[in-house]
Computed example of a mutant assay.
Amino acid sequence: MIGENKKLQFSGGTMTALGITIHNTNNQYSAEENYQIMLNSSMSYSAHFFVDKDIAIQVMPLDVQAFHTGKAYDNGNKYTIAIEICSKGNDEEFNKAVENTVLLIQMIRNKLGNLPIYFHNDFDRTKYCPHRLLDQYQNKENFIRRWNLVN
C-alpha cells in the first residue's frame, strides 16, 4: 500500500465505491513493476490494484479515491475502484491476468456488493482502454457476458 507521504499525490480523498473500472497498462511490465513505476512517478496517476498472471497487488484502500480516469474529480475517479490489468507477456499470460482480475472482481463484489463494471473508455471516450480487452472482446458487454459478471 502507498505510504502516508504519497497519499496526497495519488489520492483524491475518501470514497464510497459505486463501481469497478478496468484498465489495461500499455506496457510490458509486471504488476509489481507497474506499482513501482506509479510510486516513482512525479505524476498523480494511481490505481487500487495492479494484476498480472501471477498476482494482484492492492496499492490503495478501497475507500480512497484514485486518479485513474484522467479527468481529476470525474465520476470514475470519485466513485470507482481502479484495476490495472498488466499487459506483460503473450496472449496466454495476459489471459491468465484477466482470469486473476475476474477473481479479484468477485472478491470485491463479495465484500462490497454487486458493483457495476466499467471500462476506462466509459469515462473518457478519447481513450482506447482497456485496449487488449477491447481488441479481444470488442466491447465491455461481451467481456461481462463471457465472464458472467452481470451488472
Rank of each mutant, 00 (worst) to 15 (best):
Phe67Ile: 03
Pro116Ala: 01
Asn114Gly: 11
Phe94His: 10
Asn77Gln: 03
Gln28Asp: 12
Cys129Met: 08
Glu33Cys: 04
Met107Glu: 06
Tyr73Ser: 12
Tyr128Met: 04
Gln9Ser: 13
Thr101Asp: 00
Ser87Trp: 06
Thr25Tyr: 05
Glu92Cys: 07
His131Glu: 13
Ile144Tyr: 02
Ile108Ala: 04
Phe123Trp: 04
Ala17Asp: 01
Tyr45Met: 06
Leu8Gly: 15
Lys78Tyr: 04
Leu62Ala: 00
Gly3Ala: 09
Pro116Trp: 02
Pro116Gln: 01
Leu133His: 07
Trp147Arg: 03
Ile2Asn: 08
Phe94Val: 12
Gln9Ile: 13
Lys78Met: 10
Arg109Gly: 06
Ile117Asn: 01
Asn24Glu: 14
Tyr29Asn: 15
Lys111Trp: 08
Val150Asn: 15
Ile55Tyr: 12
Tyr137Ala: 12
Ser42Ala: 13
Tyr35Cys: 11
Pro130Val: 13
Asn121Pro: 08
Ala66Thr: 00
Lys140Cys: 12
Lys88His: 12
Thr101Gly: 03
Ile108Ser: 10
Val98Ala: 05
Gln28Thr: 09
Ile20Ser: 10
Glu84Ile: 04
Leu8Asn: 15
Thr126Trp: 05
Asp135His: 14
Leu134Met: 10
Leu103Gly: 14
Ser44Arg: 07
Lys96Val: 05
Thr101Glu: 01
Asp52Cys: 07
Asn148Tyr: 08
His131Thr: 14
Lys6Asn: 13
Tyr79Thr: 04
Ser44Cys: 10
Gly113Asn: 03
Asn148Asp: 10
Pro116Thr: 00
Gly19Leu: 00
Leu104His: 01
Leu18Asp: 02
Ile105Lys: 06
Asn40Gly: 15
Met60Val: 04
Glu99Ala: 15
Tyr35Leu: 15
Ala17Ser: 07
Phe119Glu: 04
Leu8Pro: 10
Met38Asn: 11
Ser11Pro: 02
Asp91Ser: 15
Asp124Cys: 09
His68Trp: 03
Gly13Arg: 03
Asn26Gly: 12
Lys127Pro: 04
Lys96Leu: 08
Val51Cys: 05
Glu92Leu: 13
Phe50Asn: 09
Leu112Ile: 00
Glu92Ala: 14
Tyr128Ser: 07
Leu115Tyr: 07
Asn90Val: 09
Leu115Phe: 09
Asn5Phe: 14
Tyr45Glu: 09
Ile37Asp: 09
Asn110Trp: 06
Met1Glu: 04
Tyr137Asn: 10
Thr69Arg: 05
Ser41Asn: 11
Gly12Glu: 00
Ile2Gly: 06
Ile57His: 08
Ile85Met: 10
His48Met: 07
Arg145Asp: 15
Gln136Arg: 08
Ile117Lys: 02
Val51Gln: 05
Leu39Cys: 13
Asn110Leu: 11
Lys111Glu: 09
Gly113Ile: 00
Asn139Ile: 02
Ala72Asn: 12
Lys127Gly: 09
Ala17Tyr: 01
Glu32Ser: 08
Asn77Tyr: 02
Asn95Phe: 10
